[in-house]
Simulated scan of single mutants.
Amino acid sequence: MSSETATMTVANAPSHRASRLDRFLMQGGIVITFLVVAVVATALIEPRFLNRLNLLNVMRNFALLLIPSLAQMLVMTAGGFDLSVGAVVAATSVVTAAVMLVGSIYFPGMELALIIASLVIALGVGALVGLVNAGLVSIFSLSPFMVTLAMMSVLMGIALYFTQGIPIYGVVDSFVANVGRGQFLSLPLVLWVALGVLAACIIMQRFTALGRHIYAVGSDQRSARLSGVATSRTLIAAYMLAGLLAALTGFLMTSRLGSGQSTIGGTLALETIAAAVIGGVSLRGGVGRAELVALAALFLSVIANAMNLVQVDSKYQTLVLGAVLIVALAIERLLLRKRQA
């Protein structure tokens, strides 16, 4: 090797290392780094973090954040937002408990039928909300931000009026025991449900026409329409799927709480957007991977658990979540500039 060639090789080495680092960060390295640092730091600061019961609690919280985060990911990838996701969770929690309460009076002893009926009705409510959101966004060309913000206000108002802020009890015992607290292969049942939803989202994104169309609509709706993509139907599908996943979350949260509550999900819109952005979903649409959103949801669950273990006040927990979101937005902007450079 000539001296000139050797000099060029040495000079290019830092740039190669920099390019590898850039690729790592752009392909999900940020969320992986965040997660590893959070787990290691929490385990060192608070040894109780690695306690089995605490880890089970983290898994349940992760599952109940992952499902609505995937809902948010679908809508954001299609170029929109869904600020109503938390309100759908609260409304369907109330619906689930109300159906079981009324049903147990008229159909005593039919617990399995009541659980299935409440799930079907809750999913129907979620799908209807998603359909209305999508119709207002796609047909009337209204802002997704404003539409879902208004829907959030409507749903929260209805839920609070119906319950008067009082939890609805009467949830069947087997629902709480087998779903909310149930385990399969030593892992919470709700975690298995969340992982099943995650697998379905990954398959949809990578191997189905709907997944490709959601990416296309989010990247450039006009170009997608000119390419033959049914943009309105794609948006309707994305918002309805988001509504279904939010409703499923409300159903599962009811099983864990043992009651229907109109006050849950108040910060869920912020949390799901944070999970999506930290997981690499672009605010401009067209970019998003379900597996990275799952890692981001796990990261946020670990952070929340760590703050609970060290007894950080709940008001400061919201502050930390906002700070993490700001950092994630700043990193997304830097990576966007690198891609465009």
Score class of each variant (00 low, 15 high):
E291W: 03
G29A: 03
V193P: 00
L65D: 12
E4S: 11
G79D: 06
E291R: 00
V171E: 13
M152N: 11
L235C: 01
T7K: 15
Q164V: 09
G157W: 09
M253C: 10
L252W: 00
D22L: 15
S143Y: 02
F207K: 13
I236Q: 10
L270W: 05
A122E: 00
G165N: 00
V89E: 11
R337Q: 12
A323L: 07
M151H: 05
V154C: 11
M307F: 08
V99C: 04
F62D: 06
A274E: 09
V137Q: 03
I326W: 08
L64H: 07
L74W: 06
F251T: 05
M8N: 14
A274Q: 07
A330Q: 09
A43P: 06
R233Q: 07
R17P: 08
F299D: 09
V120T: 01
M73G: 06
G250Y: 00
G196P: 04
G211L: 01
L191N: 04
L252H: 03
H16T: 11
L119F: 04
L257C: 05
M110D: 10
L298I: 09
Q317M: 14
V193Q: 01
R225N: 14
R181D: 12
F145E: 01
L187I: 06
N12K: 15
V193S: 03
R225W: 14
A330R: 04
A91H: 10
A98W: 09
L35W: 03
F140H: 13
R225H: 15
Q72Y: 08
T96R: 00
L295D: 12
T254R: 07
K315M: 13
Y106W: 15
F175I: 12
V154S: 11
L292C: 06
T272C: 13
Q317S: 13
R222N: 13
N54D: 11
L149V: 02
I32N: 06
A237F: 05
G86D: 12
A296S: 15
M26G: 13
A199C: 09
M59S: 14
V190C: 07
Q27R: 13
E291N: 03
G260E: 03
H213E: 13
A246F: 09
A13P: 09
T254L: 05
Q221L: 03
A276D: 06
S118P: 00
L155E: 08
L244R: 01
T208S: 05
V324G: 09
D22S: 15
G28Y: 02
F140W: 14
L283D: 06
V310T: 05
A78N: 05
G170M: 03
G135Q: 12
I214H: 01
T9M: 15
A71R: 00
L64I: 12
L325Q: 00
L257R: 04
I32P: 04
L191F: 04
Q72W: 08
L128K: 12
